[in-house]
Design a protein around this nucleic acid. Structure first.
Lengths: 352, 352
DNA sequence: CTGTTAGCGCGTTCAC
DNA sequence: GTGAACGCGCTAACAG
């Protein structure tokens, strides 16, 4: 009976008439009063380069800890015009590669004392509505691993909010971005497949509006064309396991079934491998080679061991964060695109 | 030459001396002036139940759209004490089940016009430091799918910030939470395994500080004990694929190797299956049955088809959001725990 | 229904 | 080095 069990049901409806059910937080005025100084002195104590006498600082700090005072981020932001908030747009959070990206971005931003305002897009998300929220919240910058159209990019520019794109491209204008050079990766994979004697290729591409997907598809076809291989069948998926599996079923129906399937993502490659094995009764890699892209974790699991290209997520996210912070400090910095090449992952899903 | 290319390199260093490199946003005063009304009239126009004459409203709205005005969320929050911000704590974002949870939480909160302040915990995250940020930002509430200790929970309570735990428990005090009733699920799985004739059980558990992991371990062992099966070997993993794989290697070294392995998560079950097949040369489910828990997407892939229990993520996240919003509206609501039972997923990884 | 007034909590001049 | 005064952009009383 001594320690009151739950938080707020002592005496039924007779709850103490506290302002908001929460305790009023201490303000800099409260601290000032207790310390016997002015409010501005308190402010200077918590400012980076505030000129304050050691003695005063001590009094203030003592009072501050006593009251559990912390500067209110809202008031601070309202006046300094810095929220230390970065909006992160991310799509397909359930698609296995993005959680890793998000985790890294979050970690790196947190390390730099910046908070993440998350916008996880679903298929039906109205990006424009989300952007409204972004304006209203005065974020310092945006990192987008989601597709933005020209109109939206223009709006962001108009608002003067720095943005960095992650594995995305914006239409006309050059926009700061980090990019995994899929072209180099696909060329690498294709060359290895060619060297191992593969000739009957097929591509499992992504949706048309996916920049990375398209770059990968085009790079693959271009390299094959250079090698004299044309009319390569292409099936489009949506980066899902199911779509990869269905894709190979489609491709297998062709006159000359492929002996090498290039998938533009690991998850689709995994789907393709299962499709080959379970739907078509083919052996991978003996009967058909399958390669992917990304280097997601499940691609390394023993049952798949996807031959792939691993994106350097750590370095890419670090670059994105760095580029963004630079532009928050100095918005006049010109746009820039930083490309990274991925690393070949041998795997076992391709006969090389 | 007409359309200026990049944003800010026209004329080299001779960039126009704009305030912040960004355009100053229109304030309610600007709108008021343009519309020929008072600033408070503008405010009322954007307030839910503001009493305003249709004629005035029209004038204001016209001026507002012309200037691209939107109420500043910071100033608004400073005065109303409502930020429409919810902090979401989440751990192990790379562990396949959490991205789905996060995506759902984000979607549901966004639908209710609430923004997500993300705190993705890494192994070394100092939660107390993150909580500092939470105080400073005046979030309206917290949803935590990460472990919080008594001290931290007490701090949150002291600050009067509503919180809902997601598949976590807090020590002494009852804290609002949603929970997937793992006990019911594990009993279900064990019963089915027993009915199919399994007798030599083993458990791949989680870390000791994982509440769900422990509940699942204990429920499994309890049910087995009821059936007269004791001394069941237990190996602990960390919810990773690798740990599941290693676990079965360990278990196989015992005098009587198991014919049924109960893993407390799908990813570990996947690791266990691969361990059986590739390290031990066993057939799953012919030689040994493996069951998991969660219902993560990869568990359904053809190569694994894990027999498992699927958490009702949609309903659980919806409940979490609802409980939180209720408590934001009325902080005096008593703590409450809502449990959900998962659905059996037949799969093919257990001989049933 | 409207405008005036007073803050929300803080950073920042500017005299002292 | 310090404090008084002002303002960031807005909502909430209040009088008209």
């Amino acid at each position: 009976m001594a320690k009151s069990g739950k938080k707020s049901d002592a005496g039924k409806g007779a709850a103490a008439p506290r302002p908001f059910g929460g305790v009023r937080r201490a303000t800099s005025y409260d601290v000032a009063k207790l310390a016997g100084v002015s409010q501005s002195a308190v402010s200077r104590c918590f400012a980076p380069g505030g000129s304050i006498a050691p003695a005063t600082r001590e009094k203030v700090m003592k009072a501050a800890t006593e009251l559990g005072y912390r500067p209110n981020a809202l008031a601070q932001a309202l006046i300094t015009r810095r929220t230390n908030l970065v909006a992160v747009f991310i799509s397909r959070l359930t698609n296995l590669h993005y959680p890793e990206v998000l985790a890294e971005l979050s970690r790196q931003l947190t390390d730099r004392d910046i908070r993440v305002l998350l916008f996880a897009l679903t298929a039906e998300s109205e990006i424009d509505l989300l952007l409204e929220q972004v304006w209203r919240h005065d974020v310092d910058g945006i990192i987008s691993a989601a597709r933005l159209d020209d109109e939206q990019i223009a709006g962001i520019r108009r608002h003067g909010i720095p943005i960095v794109l992650y594995n995305r491209t914006a239409g006309e204008h050059l926009t700061p971005s980090v990019w995994c050079d899929s072209a180099a990766g696909e060329r690498d994979l294709v060359d290895r497949l060619l060297a191992a004697g593969h000739r009957r290729f097929a591509v499992v591409a992504g949706p048309q509006d996916s920049a990375v997907g398209e770059e990968r598809r085009l790079a693959t076809l271009a390299r094959l064309a250079e090698a004299g291989i044309h009319d390569v069948p292409v099936t489009r998926g949506d980066f899902s396991y199911a779509s990869g599996r269905e894709a190979v079923a489609t491709l297998a129906g062709a006159a000359t079934p492929p002996d090498a399937v290039v998938c533009v993502s690991d998850v689709m490659a995994i789907g393709a491998i299962d499709g080959c094995r379970f739907d078509l009764g083919l052996k991978v890699p003996e009967d058909v080679s399958v390669v992917g892209f990304d280097g997601s974790e499940p691609a390394g699991w023993m049952s798949y061991q996807v031959t792939s290209i691993r994106q350097p997520v750590r370095r890419m996210t670090a670059a994105a964060v760095e580029m963004l912070l630079e532009r928050i400090e100095d918005p006049t910095l010109p746009a820039e695109r930083r490309s990274f090449v991925g690393a070949f992952v041998p795997g076992q899903s391709a006969r090389l």
